[in-house]
Simulated assay, not measured.
Amino acid sequence: MCNKIFFILTVVFSSMTFYAQDKTSKIELGFNYGFGSELKNDDYTYSNSYYKLHLYYTLKKTKRFKYEILLQPELNFATHQLLNPNFVQPDDPNYIEKRERYTKLKDIKEYVLNIGFLMRKPIFKKASVYVLGSVGPMIIDTETERLSKGFAFSNVVALGITFKLNKITVDVRPNFRHVSNAGLQSLNSGYDTTNIDFGFSFSL
């Protein structure tokens, strides 16, 4: 199902580029697909893949840099499993039942709205590099030993490179992501992952 959605969006966005305006537009629309996994540890596994729509708006452009804001809705599909049952301590009520429940492999969905700031530097006529920081509210649909079900935040720091191919901008974005709920709920150890995004965008 996800592959079908990705294919449909790719066709739609690619066809829309024929109607894109010139490259001086301040607004770009695009689509990213990414995947990643947890930082190496002995307590848990976490792997994810995700789909993002993104809307860029140029705030300022100088001779050396371009500054943009980013709005990026995201749908994240993850799998998670507790490896170390002792992560759930005996002083936790019903800890035996929780250990049994949390050590089972789980499928998780996350619904995110990333809001970010991007600083871009051209390196060639058709290429640029950038640094991106974003934070966004999210809803997670499954409780684990590391994070309560419900409201949380997704924080991302990324380095990226883009290439201009006619009217389409191709994007490659390695990134680090931290998910937690800022102590707003009882479980808040969160997840730390390294990921990579691949995407494209075009001017409106």
Rank of each mutant, 00 (worst) to 15 (best):
S25A: 11
K60L: 15
A182F: 12
Q21G: 10
D107G: 08
C2K: 07
E145C: 04
T62L: 02
E74S: 10
R177A: 12
V11Q: 08
S186P: 02
N3F: 03
G116V: 06
N48T: 10
E110H: 00
N195Q: 11
T144R: 06
P85W: 05
R173F: 03
H178S: 05
E97N: 12
S25F: 02
F176V: 14
E97Q: 12
F77P: 10
H80V: 05
I123G: 10
R177K: 15
N84L: 11
E110M: 02
V135P: 00
F13K: 04
G183Q: 04
S134L: 08
V11N: 05
N181H: 07
F31G: 00
H54K: 00
P85Y: 02
L187I: 07
I168H: 03
I161E: 08
P137Y: 06
N181P: 07
G34Y: 09
D171Q: 07
I27W: 11
F163E: 11
Q81R: 15
T24V: 06
A182D: 06
L39F: 11
N84S: 10
F117T: 07
Y57M: 05
E100G: 06
I161K: 13
K40A: 13
M1P: 12
I5C: 04
K23A: 12
S189L: 03
I5P: 01
N181G: 11
L39Q: 09
L70R: 04
N86D: 14
F18P: 01
E68C: 12
K121I: 07
N48K: 11
V172T: 09
Q72P: 00
Y57F: 14
V172E: 06
G133W: 07
V11T: 11
F176I: 13
L71R: 05
R177N: 14
A127S: 14
K125P: 03
V179M: 15
H80K: 00
Q89K: 14
K63N: 08
Y46C: 02
K149F: 00
L53T: 02
D141N: 15
G150V: 02
Y44W: 09
Q72T: 04
A158V: 04
D197H: 05
V88Y: 08
V170S: 02
K4G: 09
S154P: 00
G160T: 05
Q185P: 01
K63W: 01
L132N: 14
E143L: 08
H80D: 00
I27G: 03
I115C: 04
Y191G: 03
T194V: 12
T169K: 10
F151A: 07
N94Q: 13
I115T: 03
F18C: 10
L118R: 13
V112I: 15
I140P: 01
Y50A: 02
Q21N: 09
E74V: 05
Y19H: 09
I196H: 01
L105A: 11
A182C: 03
V157C: 03
L184Q: 08
L132V: 02
E68G: 05
T193G: 08
K23Q: 14
R120T: 14
L132P: 00
H54F: 15
